[in-house]
Amino acid sequence: MNKLMKKIMISVVLTGVAFALYQNFSLMPEYQGLNEGLSNYIIKSGLNDTGSLNLITAVLYDYRAFDSLGESTVIFGAVSGIVLILSRKMLPVSSKGLSFIVKRALGIMTPFIALFGFYVITHGHLTPGGGFQGGVILAAISIIFSIVYGSAFDYRRYSPQTKTLFETGGALTFLGLGLAGILMEGAFLQNLGFLTAETGTLISAGSIPYINIGVGFKVGAGLAIIFYSMIQKTFEEDF
């Protein structure tokens, strides 16, 4: 009985996925000859299509947003594997950290590093940068906490539960924007039309800035989790 229910559930879900895929593929346009080449097309009309001044972000999060979803899934898989192998269920014990001068100077500099990370994330559609780069800069803050102040400080400030919350929140933001694309525009991860504004302002370019924020939190929290689970019992001597 239980097995039968499971089989019925699986077949229902698979039928739903197949129907959604069929609907999505039937929306694809006919093949049009791009006799000028794809890169020329993107350079010419990328700004009109997406409203993003930075064409690389336009390609990453609008034209090829599905590939970016796959990349963040790869990062999720890497984080899951490393945490599964390396987490040893022990309290975080680490060094007392570096000397007073380093602690004080990094205490002054860390808010500016965080500000730079958020700047790179939120201006991804205007200047070079974007979710991945800014996310790694945010992960560097957690690495600084672990090395300079000891990993117990990192555990108290941003516990692994908080990081897990950030990571899943970022991934859910990405997927939610994709589903909103299906509901409003008719295709998965289509750029949301009602969010467009004047080109060059901070809140413009449809859903690209929000996808950037989601990817930034996801990548930053994921890499911080990787580093934390690797460092847990390692740097015991202090320098």
Binding site: L98, V102, A105, F239
Partner: peptide
């Protein structure tokens, strides 16, 4: 800020 601090470390 950062260069003298790293050198000190």
């Amino acid at each position: 800020f950062s260069n003298p601090m790293a050198t000190h470390a």
